[in-house]
Amino acid sequence: MLKHEAQATPAPASRPSNRRQISDRSLSQLFIWPTLILLIIINIFPLFYSLFLSFTNYSAIANRPPEWIGFTNFDRLLNSNDIWGYFSLTGRYALISVGLQTVIGFGLALLLRKKFRGSGIVTTLILIPMMLSPVVVGLFWKLMFNPAYGIFNYLVGFSNPATAPDWLASPSLALWAIIIVDVWMWSPFVMLLCLSGLSAIPDYLYEAAAIDRASAWFQFRRITLPQVAPLLLIAVLFRTIEAFKAFDLVMGLTGGGPGNATQMISVEIYSQAFLGQFRTGRASALAYIVLVIIIAVSNVYIRTLNKVREG
């Protein structure tokens, strides 16, 4: 188009004509390359470098080059009872947390589906936790969980600080404390996706069902659920991956403690990489193990999703 214009009205002689002759192709490359370079530097290079590091004995603070040790890191990690403990802890956390978020989020969506006076404001209010930074959430829930002056114990019925549980300091309750916060923060996300799924269900399906004398359960089971299922599964997929990577919330609330009671796998990677001896090589290996697991889990989900979509 620029070219045509140039031909129709000859450019003034003073203006360099080659400036007008950038082709569409080079123009698009001009836009793509900066992003591509950025991606290569901060994404692709670290990806392969850490893969290399996972086969070496290397510490970021030691003044020694990485030393190739083959599968030793993986061997040690996969044979360590501690690591398997952290994995099962993370799995348990993901399962309970995502399960609760799904149920609560879907429930909220069903409640908010029918418009009522102020439903817009209520929806926005419910979405607020999702918009906060996890570190901030961690910090103020730490305050709320405080056994001496936190409001949480008071709200759930423990009015005497002397007998009230210390959620974050108790090995049996700390995990539940994190689950409570995660559910509080991310149920709205599940709700949001479910709401968009629900609003896409046409009314006449329910009307047809009403005329056909369908029970409420049938309407839910045969109309609502199948129509929302694809979006619900996407929400579950996102949340599962996030739960497996749980880090910021844990660091904000317990830092992995008390003891190792909330040492999620991501927290363990962090400890290996940036605490004590800075075992960069081993941390990279662990990160890759987590990556493989997440890819495997996602694949299972995506297959289920496709099956649901095909009906």
């Binding site: 046409p202 006449y204 399906l205 009307e207 047809a208 069902a209 045969r222 109309i223 199948p226 129509q227 009906g311």
Partner: peptide, 10 residues
């Protein structure tokens, strides 16, 4: 109905 109000997934 004017729209084909069939139950999906059945």
């Amino acid at each position: 109905f004017q729209q084909y109000s069939l139950y999906p997934n059945m």
